[in-house]
Design a protein around this nucleic acid. Sequence first.
DNA 1: CACGTTTATATCGTACACAATTGAATCGTG
DNA 2: CACGATTCAATTGTGTACGATATAAACGTG
Lengths: 165, 165
Amino acid sequence: MALRYPELDLDRQLCFPLYAAARAVVRAYGPLLDAVGLTYPQYLAMLALWGSPTEPMTVGELGERLRLDTGTLTPLLKRLENAGHLSRRRDPDDERRVLLQVTDQGWALRDEVAHVPGELLRSMRLNPDDIPELRRLLDHVLNPPEPGDEPSAPSHEAETLVPPR
Amino acid sequence: MALRYPELDLDRQLCFPLYAAARAVVRAYGPLLDAVGLTYPQYLAMLALWGSPTEPMTVGELGERLRLDTGTLTPLLKRLENAGHLSRRRDPDDERRVLLQVTDQGWALRDEVAHVPGELLRSMRLNPDDIPELRRLLDHVLNPPEPGDEPSAPSHEAETLVPPR
DNA sequence: CACGTTTATATCGTACACAATTGAATCGTG
DNA sequence: CACGATTCAATTGTGTACGATATAAACGTG
């Protein structure tokens, strides 16, 4: 059995609670979004489109915003189109791009889900003080500081979670 | 356009960075686990089996540990079995159960991934002080305190993320 | 000791995720 | 202006997730 490898203990991992918590939250959205016929990733896509300063948005812009690639987005967007929430059409000025436009029905959907974020947040029962703290830590994980960026000085080159463009 | 619904702003959501960060971390594991032919959920399953005080473990126990259901685990475990990392057999004492046993090859795999957690943690570039804090917050999300458990007193009944058994 | 209930997995159907490849449109440079 | 490089989206293939249903084994009670 060699050594004990305490570092492999599931309870010492940071990745596992992160992974499990993300799934738990998506699951918690289930019933609320089911009521309007959306899945959680579809809901995120609608949030991104509703909040975009540049409507219409392209598939690439949406993917950058949600950090999802076209293999995920193309079928998801087709389902949202079939549901009547958005339209997809090639950009006449650049036939490579596909423009995503929220339909009237898609805008109406916004009223129906306006209560959802608050409801979810309440169900998480986080300390109000913990909310910005959790957001800060998650943002850090999503955008790790560059090696030379600031405080800690880990000289030895290592890959970051999100490589610089 | 009705009201502006600031609560629907993607950047105000807590769920989105949680969801995106979890995917980013799984993606970061990709190359490291690829080297030994595991996916991230398969790696978690092996961590759970390696660390189980009660070998052999049943599918149900593993599912409880990882918070995954049989629809996910059964095919995943078959792949691990095909890869030679574990064996699956019906419990002779209760034919409903399936016992999961790590093979010699499965134990050997442990040596090969022992460096992985440390490498990942370094790539996240978290402040050492932030690590227990992030763990605490994620554990809170995974196990929200019961309404009567402690401090805040939100009298009105509301669903928790994880309902009590 | 039958027989309805509960329990443990498996199966099915739908919907992500993402790496890798494809194919068409555009761009940049000579 | 030609033509190779780049960009953008779609497609393909594999592997999760999870609700719902199915099935078989074990259990409990009359």
